[in-house]
Computed example of a mutant assay.
Amino acid sequence: MSRRAPTSLTLARAVPLFSLSAGALDPFETLAVDSSRLQVLLGNHKARQAPEPVFSVVESLEFQNFRAVFRTGLVDPALLNAVMLSFAFAVTEGSIDRECLGYQGKAISFIRERMNSLDEAASESTIGTILLLAGVEARLGTTSQVQLHMGAVQRLLEICRSKGVYLTGGIKRAIFWQDLNSSVLAGSHRIVDHTTFAELEWTRDPFSPSFFRPPPGFQRLSHLLTRELIEVIEDINALQCIRDVVPQSKRGDVMMMANINNHIASIQSRLVGLPALSPVLKCCHLAAYLCSVMLCCTIWCALVIPSHLSSQLLQALQQARDDPV
């Protein structure tokens, strides 16, 4: 006997803090996975951030919820299995069990078949599936697999550009953030940066010049830092100022949240590309990145990033202990 997919109302009651966007569940109740298992996973707090940065299950994050990224429901079997993999992987706290292997195997099988016709594969759902697979591999630290997945995304992007295929701003953000996060977690080569997509463009606000200055402590030590790092520190200071002056009522504004997201994207993308010319500079780069992550406007940055950066920073500080600076 087939199991009925839960209605959006049922999901809202079962998952009061977060849910997939309205209409994301297949209206014809033909989900390619056990819908009751999906509901259980959605109700597990450990899975709350699992699909990020590809999409967010937080309804208030309108510019990056499921509908904004994919323009469709959970009708694509490859995407659905990748979503289930992300949820199940989070519940296991970072280990691949039999359930995860099942979802992973099915998602990869669907994608391999689809990639036989690259023109047909050039879509948000295919790209999103691959990004979710890459996210799991990044958390496992398997650099070669991450690069294999991101290489496929790069190929699909090239096809979309050559064929004039429209992609949502949400999937472009997903590509940027998954690429950047994977680079931080697994050391993979990046395929895009903060200048690649127009949707992530950010410039300093000319009407708030006082925000863009380094704090006094950094001003005194500016001779030890590179110009590029000082500019990043100025932008982090501005981000803090903006967060402080934005009223609570405005923090759900889509345009404002997207602009803050772009601000953070510019900071972090530039930081990753800065050369660590000394042990002290390496510590500053890591600390600045960690600060920018913790200033995110929502739960957008997965908890795995701060803990990973903190571990790296501790090691860098220990290595810099004898540095005369």
Rank of each mutant, 00 (worst) to 15 (best):
128 G>F: 00
107 A>Y: 04
19 S>L: 07
144 S>L: 13
120 E>C: 03
182 S>M: 03
110 F>I: 01
103 Y>V: 05
263 H>Y: 03
167 L>C: 03
276 A>R: 12
312 Q>P: 10
282 K>D: 08
323 D>M: 08
236 I>G: 01
101 L>Y: 14
197 F>M: 12
92 T>F: 12
28 F>L: 10
220 R>E: 15
52 E>M: 13
296 C>G: 11
159 I>M: 03
289 Y>T: 04
160 C>N: 07
137 E>R: 06
113 E>W: 05
52 E>F: 08
265 A>P: 08
308 H>A: 15
65 N>F: 08
9 L>Y: 09
137 E>D: 13
29 E>C: 06
214 P>Q: 06
223 H>F: 13
11 L>G: 02
236 I>D: 01
176 F>K: 14
320 A>C: 06
34 D>A: 01
188 S>R: 05
295 L>D: 05
234 E>V: 02
181 N>Q: 12
17 L>K: 13
240 Q>W: 14
46 K>W: 11
267 I>W: 03
127 I>Q: 01
310 S>V: 08
183 S>A: 15
234 E>G: 04
257 M>V: 04
63 F>N: 09
212 F>T: 00
144 S>F: 10
19 S>M: 03
219 Q>M: 15
70 F>V: 11
247 P>L: 14
325 V>W: 12
162 S>T: 13
115 M>A: 05
208 S>E: 02
279 P>C: 09
298 T>W: 12
139 R>I: 05
238 A>M: 08
145 Q>L: 14
75 V>E: 07
114 R>F: 04
5 A>S: 12
287 A>Q: 12
312 Q>R: 15
232 V>T: 13
72 T>A: 14
322 D>V: 09
47 A>Y: 05
9 L>K: 10
260 I>P: 00
101 L>T: 10
71 R>V: 08
253 D>N: 15
246 V>S: 04
33 V>R: 01
247 P>M: 14
56 S>M: 08
270 R>M: 13
217 G>K: 07
270 R>C: 15
253 D>S: 09
40 V>K: 06
318 Q>V: 10
246 V>T: 14
250 K>Y: 09
270 R>A: 15
216 P>A: 10
314 L>N: 10
76 D>P: 02
270 R>G: 09
281 L>P: 03
84 M>F: 01
77 P>L: 07
194 H>K: 07
223 H>P: 06
213 R>W: 00
272 V>N: 08
147 Q>I: 06
226 T>F: 05
237 N>S: 12
256 M>Q: 07
137 E>W: 09
32 A>T: 12
276 A>S: 15
115 M>R: 05
241 C>N: 05
276 A>N: 02
193 D>F: 03
83 V>K: 00
57 V>A: 11
112 R>F: 09
252 G>C: 11
133 L>M: 08
43 G>M: 07
167 L>A: 09
251 R>N: 01
270 R>Y: 10
280 V>L: 12
145 Q>M: 13
164 G>H: 11
37 R>M: 00
93 E>L: 13
195 T>M: 08
184 V>Y: 04
267 I>Y: 02
201 E>Q: 15
52 E>W: 02
211 F>V: 00
109 S>W: 05
75 V>D: 04
25 L>S: 00
290 L>G: 01
114 R>C: 09
20 L>F: 09
87 F>G: 01
50 A>R: 02
301 C>T: 07
292 S>W: 06
124 E>G: 03
111 I>P: 02
241 C>Q: 14
296 C>D: 14
129 T>G: 05
78 A>E: 10
94 G>S: 10
294 M>R: 13
142 T>C: 11
43 G>R: 00
215 P>C: 04
